[in-house]
Design a protein around this nucleic acid. Sequence first.
RNA 1: GCCCCCAUAGCUUAAUGGAUAAAGCCGCGGACUUCUAAGCCGUUGAUCUAGGUUCGAUUCCUGGUGGGGGCACCA
Length: 561
Amino acid sequence: MKHVIEQAVKDAIATLGITESRCVVEYPADESHGDLSTNAALVHAKELGQSPRAVAEALLPHLTAALPMVANITIAGPGFINFTLSRAVFTKTVTTVIQDPQTWGKNSSLTGKTVIVEYTDPNPFKEFHIGHLFTNAVGESIARLFMVNGASVKRVNYQGDVGLHVAHAVYGMQALGLSPTAGFTARDLGRAYAYGATAYKNEETVAVTIRDINRHIYARDNQDINELYDAGRRVSLEYFETVYKLVGTVFDDYFFESETGPRGKALVLEHPSVFPKSDGARIFPGEDYGLHTRVFLNHEDLPTYEAKELALAKIKEERLGNYDHSIISTSNEINEYFKVLLCALSQIYPDLANKTEHIGHGTVRLTTGKMSSRTGDVIAAIDFINEVADAALERMIATGSAAPDRTVAEMVAIGAIKYTALHGSILQDSVFDKDRALSFEGDSGPYLQYTHARIGSVLEKAAGVGVTPSTSTPPPVPYPVERLLRAFPEILETALHERAPHQVVTYLTALASAFNAFYATERIADADDKCAPYKAAVASAVQTTLKNGLWVLGIPAPERM
RNA sequence: GCCCCCAUAGCUUAAUGGAUAAAGCCGCGGACUUCUAAGCCGUUGAUCUAGGUUCGAUUCCUGGUGGGGGCACCA
């Protein structure tokens, strides 16, 4: 519909002798300004030497003739042209949604394209904390946005199972007496890491020992260290899987620094002119490109994260096949680093560098400041999910919920947490507000889930009195909630193009709000109301939109709560 | 010191260069005695600062202030 009007506006402007226009057709924020609006007259008034309103008057007859599905066209304000769509347009949208709920919102603009999305990227041996929860929610929603726009998506997780941080943990394991035979937990590993990291920083003799452990881990030439390492890695990765299961992420493949390390080192050595020697290390001179210099191989010839990342791009292609686009979503703390890295990558694999995109999302901070797994000042993801789920279950029991069970409580918890992570621009840093995440009222995941469940309930009740969804007898004036409904497919497109899942959150919240206002004034389960079947159809269409939209956000939509 | 990012209501956040800057939380006040009150309705309250571009700037440009991140062998 929007495209039809855009074309009509373009044609109308052409009659005035203007072929190139930067005017737009948009959805006005205020519904008194119609269903669609264009600023065409404002944009071109100056070059035509007329007032904006005069230009609008001149365009009006052309637009009226070209747009039979528009009920009314008016000129308003400084010269906006506002279009009010006919009733039939809205009825058609509701009909479309209820006839084919599965495909509602989807498009095929990226059909045939393969996109790799890398996200979460926790480091084994360290705690999986709420920051990882945030990065996971962002990556998952980006992946799903690609899917609803038609792309084939491969989810990928890249984990740092070698490197100095692991040596810190292994040192800590030795010092704290963790033993593979006696058994230990992921939590013990987190403590071991914090212990080792602190000792590394404070005592030079320990630092020497840890660097030694680091060499042994890479070389795998010390049996005691190998045993500790292997056990720690396994416990850590198993623990991560329990979190992925809770948040609903299924990775297609996992990559590890232990495999990218040797390949990365080889790549650096194969390109000595790109990575010259400096102070015993191999570096990339980013200054030559307006960036900064970074070390790729340290003076012990061990690959740094930078060298590993070079190899990762190639290994992804080898394992997953040729791809069209590759997203790497991480915290914005490493934005500058990534610019250097992509620059270096473009020197050795220009084709891969061209289709690799880094999304540096905001960092989660505690009210007390930045989290640090080095000092152990983190909130473990699993603890937090459980705490929110406990609160949700408590509330269900207290309010006499239709479905007071732990599984639904966990769905609500995941909804609350993901909503908190995604409700604002993902690029901005955010302060982690526990009370807000624990609140299930107002703009929140549970608000959307509740609205979805509530619709299910009322539709059931309606069916019980013989009211089933039908669009055959609509009331003459569309309900406000119907006006929101039709924007959904377009929201999914722009949210992807702008890498902005929060647009989906904002939209769904507005939709739920409009529905709840509708629900408060209109009775649906009423066999005596001729419009009841149409109201039920609207309710059903909203429910489908919420369900499909929540899916994009990675938020489960329980049938009852 | 150099580079990058950010600044909207007491708090958390919206707003493709457009019309009266929009929500939620908090506070205050209502309705409902009938479909799930995790709901609905009303109400107080904001664009860091000085310029510039534009018919029009929260949005784009420049300076300033304040905050965050990065800048050689961590990731």
